[in-house]
Amino acid sequence: MRRFRRTLITALLTALLAGGTAGRAAASAQSPPIGPLPGTAAWLADGFPGKEPPDPATAGPHEVAAFFAGLTGAQQRGLVRDHPTVVGNLDGAPVDLRYEANAHAGDQVLAYDPRGRGMIAQVAGDLENAAHIAVIVPGSDTDLAAFGATARQAADLQKEAGDDTAVIAWAGYTTPSGIGPDLATGRLAETGAERLTRFTGGLDAAGLPDPSLFCHSYGSVVCGLAASDTDASDIVVMGSPGMRADDVTALGTDARVWAAKSPKDWIDRVPNVEVLGLGHGADPTSPGFGATVLPADDVPAHDGYLTPGTSTLTAFAAIARGDLR
């Protein structure tokens, strides 16, 4: 009987996840880009003056930061000119160099990888002089083609938070696309968590403040898996199917954890279970989870938590500024 119940719950979970994404096309499993970025071989073969270049695949952000700190300004600009793809995606490299390397992709682009469906990180506000930093981690169906929505959310949050706060729209992982098993498993979230950890490590290596993470839908699964390895000051989840943890303690983080879920959000119909790798576990807004729950009654839909005028955007801005504890 127990096995039957587990199977039934799993089937129900999968069906509801699909139902919550009604209108999206069915899709096959997604695969993150593998192998080094284009230009890596030339970067590693370049004759740096008395220095061995950090391998983008293995060097940590602080190692990268130390390498750039040992170069003159002219040498740094030369690397941007000769190796823009590497410099533009190298966590730990100076912010201004990454902007310059990614200038072809847009304004204040901190990372840009066009492989596959594409990944990008773009900044709203003055990152280099910010007293506070927020990172938006979006959910499924986010890629280069659909990045505009996340970029607008970052701009709205930055405007609400104020001039001393910079907000990064981080579409830096391969998200689930359409209706498929990727939505109900943690496979893509595991890779995303590794990338998010490295990205936030790059902010730290660049001497920037500890970020607050604002994680939507499947992005909250990414943040849950990354929680123990980031230096985030706050982790905020909205419309979350679960964080792959039973409670806040299981996240293994010192960050303050916040959660919001609108009564109008279809995610409320998804069972909060994890069975045989399917499902993402406990509801972060449940009393036993231990997160601080934010009111979200005025949020109009699953994608509406950062809508101007909502109580959640106001609260998120206060968290980003460090005013709400």
Rank of each mutant, 00 (worst) to 15 (best):
P211M: 14
A161C: 09
R195I: 01
A134F: 08
T165F: 03
F214M: 08
A193C: 07
A124Y: 04
D182H: 09
E160R: 14
D204I: 13
R152Y: 08
G148N: 11
I179D: 02
L144V: 12
A145R: 14
A134D: 13
G186I: 03
G180R: 05
G186L: 05
A155Y: 04
T191M: 01
H216R: 10
E194M: 14
A193Q: 03
A130E: 05
A166G: 08
R198V: 02
G125N: 07
L213S: 08
T197L: 05
S140A: 15
K159A: 15
S212L: 03
A193D: 05
G172T: 10
V137E: 04
G172D: 02
I168S: 01
P138Y: 05
H132Q: 14
A161D: 13
S140T: 14
A206G: 08
A146E: 15
Q153T: 02
W170E: 02
S212G: 13
I168A: 02
A124E: 09
T150K: 00
Y173W: 15
V123Q: 13
A161Y: 10
P181M: 15
G219V: 14
L157F: 08
G148E: 11
L213G: 03
T175A: 15
Q158N: 01
Q153E: 13
L157K: 09
A155Q: 12
H132C: 06
A166I: 06
T185F: 03
A155K: 15
D204T: 15
A169Y: 01
P138T: 10
G139C: 07
K159D: 14
G219K: 04
L188W: 12
L127S: 04
V135T: 06
G186Q: 11
A124K: 05
T175D: 10
L188R: 11
A131Q: 14
C215L: 10
L196Y: 04
A161K: 11
L203P: 03
G202K: 06
A193Y: 03
H132S: 13
I168T: 09
A134V: 08
S140D: 13
S212Q: 03
P211E: 12
G207W: 01
G139Q: 04
P211S: 15
G202V: 00
T185R: 13
G139D: 02
N129G: 06
A189N: 09
A189F: 08
G148Y: 13
